[in-house]
Each structure stands twice: as structure tokens, then as C-alpha cells.
Design a protein around this nucleic acid. Structure first.
Lengths: 172, 172
DNA sequence: TAGTGTCGGTTCATTCATTGAACCGATGAA
DNA sequence: TTCATCGGTTCAATGAATGAACCGACACTA
């Protein structure tokens, strides 16, 4: 996104949201974070994003309060980027947009399937469990490979996601 | 969004969705279209978007099948941009992202309130009616000004939205 | 009939973000 | 000592966004 990431004239919550997560790559970074990706190198390899852009986005997301930086090792110093509550709350928008894409922008069968763990039932298009009807928190959801997925990528994250994985659990 | 609007490496429905609606301004155009805006000049005045960008976005959205161009007057020739089914289906992602923004990115009280017309009950954060529990279609939803809104903009669309308005109904 | 205004654009120079390759510093392993 | 890894930063080139100016078709008015 170029020239003014902000939409100042818009007196609208959507504009405020897009100022935080509307730039190119940002929502894909957040999706990966919801999947459980936490480390710079894993984002980098999984997203094929330019290093400079990834640095800028991670710092901006920490600044915006969607991620926190947590040192998990002292020598050499290594940080991981973990979702805050605001970041985890992006699960619903990310999921609904993803489902829209699955239905209207992608062709073929679903690439990923999402299940409500307590019920072992799939989610509907809106993110509600088809069994209990409740809206889901990410930590109650499991991603499984769908019929339309092809195992072509060989980065650590893609390989780890070839088997079912609970959202937010560290990946890979 | 610069240099390659596409995310080719990503085998992910979210990436497909963002290729269609992830560019700067695009989601705000779609939000306006869901509100009922249909004409070039109204988008222009309400969004404060550069004319060239608006032209490009409207054409891209028609190309992508989210809008159709419909001639509503012959002399002089005038077209309006109307949502397709795929465009109307963006209601849920737009609403959930908007609600996320209202909660985590905006401060103060809600700027807009959304009601399920058949029940006259507000929607919850996920787009379900708090009375009947069903997920809503845009044509069943009414937007009303919320306690946090300030009537500062004077363009035709902003003025029309100072009173309750059913989504998709032509605006202004 | 000329002049003016509106609508829906296009064109253009400037400014800025993205890209991808190269570089860098700290550390650990051989 | 050398080499590799991790997590960045720097830099030149490219291309998108911006905003002002321009434009063509038509309507309305004097």
C-alpha cells in the first residue's frame, strides 16, 4: 500500500482496521501467526515475502498491539512474535475472508478444512461450529489439509501443516 | 499495493481473496457498495480517493466479478456499479473486520449500529442477529448512526447516512 | 448559438512503497 | 580459524498512489 497507509477522512471502523492490517502482506502475516508461526525465519520462508517488508510489518504489528515480541533464548538473542488478544480476535475476520476466497476466488476443492475440536465438527462459512452452533476461538479450532491442497511447498511451516494442527500451537 | 498484487506462492484461499480485494482502497469501495453507493461521483466524494485509483479499482472489481456495470441512463450515457452475488457475499468479511476495528482500532463509542430488520435486533460481533441467532444477508440489515459518530462530512453519501438506511438500497 | 456546468473519466509529473539482492553482526559448530 | 545460521539493515530499481490538470459528451441557459 502506498502513500499514506491511513484513511483519515473516513469516519469508519473499517478504515481504522485497514490502517492496522490493510497493507500488503499484513493479513497473511496475521494468518500465519494464527496458525502458530512465531519466528522471523518461518514467516520468511512460508510467505516468500521480502525481508525488509517482513521486518517492517512485524514491527508495525507489535507497535499496533497485535503482536508482542518475546525473547525465548538469550544466546544468541532470539525473539518470537506472539499474538495478543487483539491479534487473536482477528481470527473471525481472517476466517470469513478466507472462506469468501475459497468460495468466490479460488477454484477447485477447499485447501484447508477447519474443525471445532470440542465437537469434532466442521465450521460453517461464518466461523460457527456446525454441531454446537457457537462461534469459535482460535485455540478450539484445528486446521486439516483439504481435498484441494497440493503438497508442493517444502518450507518447514508448509510441511508441518500437512497434518492436522491446532491453531495458535507453535509451528513448526 | 505495489509490485505484484498477487501472492502466487501462497496456496491459500486468503491469498486468493486478497488478490481481489486486498489492494489499498478496494475494501472501502466494497463497503460503500454494500451501503448502496453506485455512482462514480458518489464513491469519489465519499471516499476522498484519487480519481485514477477509483477508476482502476472499479474496473478491476467488474473484471473480478464483484461488481457489474449497468447503464441506467442513455443521454448522457451513465453507468452505475452494482454488486454481484460474490460482491454481496463480502458482507460478512467486511462486517467482521469492521467490528474488529470498532473494538480494537477505534476509540470511543461505535460509529454505526447494525440491526436485523425482521427482528429489529442488533447484530453481534460475528454478524448474527442477537434475537433470532441467524446470520444475516445484507438486504436484511439496517445501518443506523451510532453514539460515536460525528456529522462532519457533507458529501451526499455521508448526509444520507445520517438517518437509518437499509444495506444495498441505492444511496444517496 | 455561444457560454457554462456536470459527469465520468484520462494523463501526467511527483512522491512513496515494494522488491530482491547484497551486506552485516552476533553467535555456535567443526 | 573458518564456515554456517539467524535476524535483520541497506540500497538501487521498479512500479503504484497521489492530486492537479485536462478532456469529451451532453444539458441547460441566456
Amino acid at each position: 500500500m502506498a502513500l499514506g497507509k491511513n484513511y483519515e477522512g473516513q469516519q469508519c471502523a473499517l478504515a481504522r482496521a485497514l490502517e492496522l492490517v490493510g497493507e500488503r502482506w499484513t493479513l497473511l502475516v496475521m494468518r500465519d501467526a494464527l496458525y502458530g508461526v512465531r519466528r522471523y525465519g518461518d514467516f520468511l520462508a512460508h510467505l516468500d515475502i521480502p525481508r525488509a517488508v517482513l521486518s517492517q510489518r512485524l514491527h508495525a504489528l507489535v507497535e499496533a498491539g497485535l503482536l508482542t515480541r518475546h525473547r525465548y533464548q538469550e544466546a544468541p538473542p532470539r525473539d518470537e512474535y506472539v499474538l495478543t488478544e487483539a491479534g487473536r480476535a482477528l481470527w473471525t475476520p481472517v476466517y470469513t475472508l478466507s472462506q469468501w476466497g475459497e468460495r468466490y476466488a479460488a477454484d477447485g476443492e477447499p485447501m484447508r478444512l477447519f474443525f471445532h475440536l470440542p465437537c469434532d465438527a466442521p465450521l460453517d462459512m461464518n466461523g460457527a461450529c456446525t454441531a454446537c452452533g457457537r462461534h469459535t476461538e482460535p485455540q478450539e479450532v484445528e486446521v486439516r489439509p483439504g481435498p484441494g491442497v497440493r503438497f508442493v511447498r517444502e518450507d518447514a511451516v508448509s510441511v508441518a501443516m500437512r497434518r492436522p494442527h491446532r491453531l495458535l500451537d507453535p509451528l513448526p
